[in-house]
Amino acid sequence: MIFAAAIAEAFRAACREEIEAPKPGNVHVFAGGHNMEAAHFLTSAEASAGPLAAPGASVGARVLGAVTASFDAVGMNTNLGIVLLCAPLAAAAERGGPLRPALAHVLAGLDRNDADQVFRAIALANPGGLGAAAHHDVRHPADTSLLEAMREAAPRDRIAYQYASDFDDIFVTGLFALAEAQTRGLTSPLRAVAVYLVFLSSFADTHVFRKFGAGTAAEVRREATEMLLLFHSRRGDCLPELLAFDQSLKARGLNPGTSADLTVATLFADRLRNGLPSRRNDD
């Protein structure tokens, strides 16, 4: 179907743009890190795009299918957070109409089956910092809807918070940062760097927080704020400084993966809002 293919390509393009951006602490084409390389992420994006955009699929089925395909392709967790964020956006785009109201409808309809499939995907990916939970442990069958599980996790996980807030960080912080970057004349991949640094400086990255605690997460946020000021003052012309910050974070084992996931979702949402064909052209 034309429309599904367009959603899949929007996802691939968002993933490519993000991996081409020199995002400090995260994997990109300028430098690998954390035992991963850019090729792992590009392969994962290609493998997971089809299941993510599967016509008529539930959010849970999209997540489980995409994570399974990605894990089969590269044998490691590269894009769980990306898929968790992009699957509801893909389902919303399939509905048609303005993206955020459609997304709110998708999120409101999430049920226990969605939770079961997402829990299986999370357990398969086994992300860093995952431990036993007092409520809604992903290693056990779901006992509530996916939306309720995400609401319970929202205070400690920024990806879960998106489900609880109708993706507030994406539609407010992320898309505003993207529009501002474009107003400043930044193009790909520097506009993705701008979005990433805004996320990293706006709140504690929960991937860093889970693994290293509040103090380290706050320090990374402070350093990102300084880098964002430099980035803006030089209109993005600061690759040596970005790569030095990148090396510093990686030397400390710090991977702001949540900020990178939110960046992909922002780029994906932008493409879904502005780059899809009319549903009238769909097969």
Results as ranks from 00 to 15, higher is better:
Val118Thr: 14
Phe41Leu: 10
Val29Tyr: 10
Val118Ile: 05
His28Ile: 00
Phe41Gly: 01
Ser44Tyr: 03
Pro24Cys: 00
Met76His: 12
Ala93Leu: 06
Phe30Asp: 12
Leu124Tyr: 14
Ala108Leu: 03
Pro88Glu: 07
Leu42Asn: 02
Leu80Val: 07
Ala38Met: 02
Ile122Gly: 00
Gly60Thr: 09
Gly109Trp: 09
Pro24Phe: 04
Val59Gln: 03
Ala54Ile: 02
Arg112Asn: 03
Asn113Ile: 05
Phe119Pro: 11
Ala123Gln: 11
Leu64Cys: 06
Phe71Leu: 05
Leu89Arg: 00
Leu52Asp: 02
Ile82Ser: 12
Ala93Tyr: 01
Ala90Pro: 11
Gly75Tyr: 13
Val63Met: 13
Pro24Glu: 07
His105Thr: 11
Gly96Cys: 03
Ala49Cys: 05
Ala57Asn: 08
Ala87Tyr: 02
Ala102Gln: 08
Ala38Asn: 07
Arg95Cys: 05
Gly32Thr: 05
Ala31Gly: 09
Val29Trp: 11
Gly97Val: 06
Gly33Cys: 11
Ala31Ser: 15
Glu94Tyr: 10
His40Gly: 07
His40Cys: 11
Arg120Met: 14
Leu64Arg: 15
Gly50Trp: 13
Ala38Ser: 14
His28Tyr: 04
Ala123Thr: 13
Gly25Met: 02
Asp114Trp: 07
Asn79Gly: 11
His40Thr: 08
Ala39Arg: 10
Pro22Ile: 00
Pro24Asp: 06
Ala73Arg: 04
Ala53Lys: 04
Ala108Ser: 14
Ala69Gln: 06
Ala121Lys: 08
Val59Lys: 00
Val118Ala: 12
Ala57Thr: 07
Asn77Phe: 09
Pro88Asp: 04
Pro98His: 02
Val27Arg: 05
Val67Arg: 14
Asp72Cys: 11
